[in-house]
């Protein structure tokens, strides 16, 4: 554990809590892509199957359980509790265009051809692209509420901090996880354009982020 890794996990947690609180307090999931949230729930589910097989640390176990619980709670709020506020019209990204290549890639590239390893790889690849329905929705409607952009900011920050963590781990312990690092870098690139808009529009005091 290093400071980048811890800060990354905290950012990730903050992002998820921001989204959950936004939906809960406003009693609405307008502007939120349910598809992205379903994909994140699938990411956590397929990645954390090792909760049942190996024990790493109390921190590891607790965080996994928290991420799973919060992601399912988010999906529940969007698709059940506040379903009438869900903007399915604009959440029109074709998820199969992500799932099919990701399933294919995880069968081609993995550390071992076992169900657990292939599912772990699938979760890593899927996480890299899971935000795309959300970014697509923002592009389609041309705007995002500032609270939604804060969510995306912390999610992107988490990815950037994980890269710093890998650089640190490579230099201090020679750790290099090729699958995680390559897809992590790809994932972070998706946020660059958003980061630029966030800094130029939201931080400078606009309540909504409108696309130019």
């Amino acid at each position: 554990m290093n400071v980048f890794r811890l800060a990354g996990d905290v950012s990730h947690l903050v992002a998820i809590i921001i989204l959950l609180l936004k939906i809960w307090r406003s009693r609405s999931c307008a502007g939120i892509s349910g598809k992205s949230q379903l994909l994140f729930a699938l990411v956590f589910t397929t990645r954390y199957l090792d909760l049942f097989t190996v024990y790493i640390s109390a921190y590891n176990t607790i965080m996994k359980v928290v991420f799973l619980a919060l992601s399912y709670a988010t999906v529940y709020l969007i698709y059940m509790r506040f379903r009438n506020t869900y903007d399915s019209e604009n959440d029109s990204f074709r998820v199969e265009f992500l799932l099919v290549p990701v399933i294919g890639l995880s069968f081609l590239e993995h550390y071992a051809f076992t169900p657990m390893e292939v599912l772990w790889t699938f979760s890593i690849f899927l996480e890299a692209v899971a935000i795309m329905p959300q970014l697509f929705m923002i592009t389609k409607t041309g705007e995002a509420e500032s609270i939604t952009t804060h969510y995306l900011f912390f999610l992107g920050l988490y990815r950037a901090l994980y890269i710093a963590n890998w650089v640190w781990r490579y230099h201090t312990e020679g750790f290099f996880d090729q699958i995680a690092v390559v897809s992590g870098v790809v994932q972070t690139i998706f946020y660059c354009d958003f980061f630029y808009l966030y800094v130029t529009k939201v931080v400078q005091g606009r309540s909504k982020m409108s696309l130019p």
Partner: peptide, 10 residues
């Protein structure tokens, strides 16, 4: 042959 990595990261 590739080595299975330890999954301590989230």
């Amino acid at each position: 042959k590739k080595e299975v990595k330890s999954k301590d990261e989230l």
